[in-house]
Amino acid sequence: MKLAICAGTATTGKSALLHHVIPRLQRRGWSVAFLKIDVQYADEDERFARDFSIPTRKVYSGDLCPDHCNVMVLGDAVQWAEKSGADILLVETAGLCLRCAPYVDRGLGIVVVEATSGMNLPRKIGPILSLADIAVVTKIDRVSQAEREVFRARIMEAAPQVRIREVNALHGIGVDPIADAIARQPDIDAELTLRGNPPVGTCTICVGKKTIGWQSHFGVVRALENQTFYRGE
């Protein structure tokens, strides 16, 4: 199973991007499953199931940070995707707290940022950008070439090791290399580990436990199937 996690704040163009990525992967013969993690509303699962006839799921994180929620449910989700016969699991998550990042080792981390978001954005969003493998810059049709180039420089300055790809996610221009990168990704390991260090805090994720799956955590946790519940003494 290959895994790609696509993160970024609301309306940056994650769904628009994946809407062009999925058919490109299908044309190369891959079976794709899709999981959407959002705080309180999402309809991408229904849209993608209808448009591409693929297995899709969504989970509302509610009181949890979506990235924390991701840590809890991703283990279950990989099993679900495997059972549905998929070779690639695509996860779309609205990284909100900007202190953590949802990427896991051996999964491709894609952060989506919009060219229209202002030149200081790359300095503001922290690990969701710096821990990603690829930064996808959307809405390049809305700004001048000069602004695109300066925005790219700002990303390189904040996250020098992250590859940058500019796309028009509305028309699918520039999307091929992103589908290629997902297809070239190695399979994930049985045990998934969160990339980077979560922020200081009091829950088991917050105190730095990086193993994926609610079974490894205590306190307020959640499974893919259930609402949040308390686990522990």
Partner: peptide, 9 residues
């Protein structure tokens, strides 16, 4: 990052 080597751009 362990998996960056796999992206050949």
């Amino acid at each position: 990052m362990a998996n960056q080597a796999s992206i050949d751009w």
